[in-house]
Design a protein around this nucleic acid. Structure first.
Lengths: 245, 245
DNA sequence: TTTTATAGTTATATTTATATCACAAATCTT
DNA sequence: AAGATTTGTGATATAAATATAACTATAAAA
């Protein structure tokens, strides 16, 4: 890989388990004049990062061996390198922001190459600026709403806990995420496709009926009468929504 | 989500010399609501692409007359259309990326149909994102008009809900779409043919009187006196329209 | 390891929407 | 007014969408 490292070019470490994605990133970043190194799993990524000390890291969250969040934490622990997280699901964004990982930026898939390159440049620039003026960059307020209350529903996003009519209900993670997505925009009808993309992730190629089944399981837990749902409602021909009252 | 508002379907050009493969692709993409055109050799593919300007191209590498790589290059030269390369061998991947073809994505055979469809969607979406950002990278500019108000009618496009004189009316999806189409251009008389094309879809071969029946069912729900409609009016010999009042 | 929980898939049942048709009513033409 | 044309209406068969149940694979826990 050492064959054509440009002299002054910045080096970017690309971490993703999917070869096509890596290829596209490599191709486009090279075209922009950057050097690239690749890793396809989390453990390797940490090793390479510590050894090669890249100028920036593009880091997918879903990784074999060691997930992106852990990689981020470990690397940030010993290196001061900008990290841009790549994520396919909305629910992962919360993790990036919620846990204090120190990730500098994130970008959701599918991303346009143009946008990604722009972010890379911006983050590299930030480093230069910071190293020039040591004024501790003001931390952005990443406090997010930690509770959602809609009608008889009450979601505690920190505790991953749901209450219906005051009573604690035990949902699985997947069920919780679906309910959360719907409850965060009550009365808004959401298609199965949107749910698949936002909750399961755009890289998920599963059956769309999976959504129905998950909805049914949620209903069994939160509705009094499953055959006449009052909270999680079907909009026939479109999708599902949470009733406001 | 926006997947099939008024069915202005995207067109996909499928280029492969093997008929069975084309058939499978056509069948599945049609099922997803896309239009398809086919080409079985490279030279034809270029011609068709330039003439029909498809929204996306699925392009096999191994082709008679003109190979996929050359097709890609030529098309990209004059059109800004996403191209997904289909390849049977890993070794071909290098070619796709190595040459400056500008292919957007590739997928190796044998591929799952689900995955391919998902890739198609993702790549089409990417285009939309980019063309939205073309302006000035406005954040949530996609806030579309979510309400239509005409006279006593009130359509909430997010909730798929209709109110008449303040009261919520329960419409089926088909009824809602007809009403929405009419209400989005009040006082404008719309022919049955136009409604069939825009709401039912241009590929619909059904009876034109179907429109009448749907209109009638809408009237039953929104008009005080069905025999003297005040909202959804018939223009005899032409079609229907929504009175502005 | 065995056991248990979770999630995805598939097949079938059930519910709901809607296209079509036949005829009635209204409107237009001459 | 008679006939022709267009639109309205009710019934019904069919198609489509959704719910449900059962099964399977996989991951997590014990």
């Amino acid at each position: 890989m050492e064959e054509e490292l440009f002299k002054d070019a910045k080096t970017i470490l690309i971490v993703d388990d999917e070869q096509p994605i890596r290829d596209i990133l490599v191709y486009n970043l090279k075209k922009e004049g950057y050097n690239t190194i690749e890793a396809s799993d989390g453990a390797t990524a940490v090793d390479i990062a510590l050894e090669k000390k890249p100028d920036l890291i593009l880091l997918d969250i879903m990784l074999p061996k060691l997930d992106g969040l852990s990689v981020c934490k470990r690397v940030k622990n010993s290196l001061n390198v900008p990290i841009i997280m790549l994520t396919a699901k909305d629910s992962e964004i919360d993790k990036i922001l919620g846990l204090e990982l120190g990730a500098d930026d994130y970008i959701t898939k599918p991303f346009s190459v143009r946008e990604l390159v722009a972010r890379v440049k911006a983050n590299l620039r930030k480093v230069e600026v910071v190293s020039n003026n040591q004024t501790g960059d003001k931390k952005e307020d990443k406090r997010k709403e930690s509770k959602i209350v809609v009608g008889e529903l009450e979601l505690d996003l920190d505790k991953f806990e749901v209450k219906v009519r005051g009573e604690v209900i035990d949902l699985t993670l997947r069920e919780f995420e679906v309910l959360k997505f719907l409850a965060s925009q009550p009365e808004q009808v959401v298609t199965r496709e949107t749910l698949l993309e936002k909750v399961w992730g755009y890289e998920y190629y599963g059956d769309i009926r999976t959504v129905d089944v998950t909805v049914r399981r949620i209903r069994e837990k939160i509705e009094k009468d499953t055959s006449a749902p009052k909270i999680l409602i079907t909009k026939r021909g479109v999708g599902y929504y949470i009733a406001d009252k």
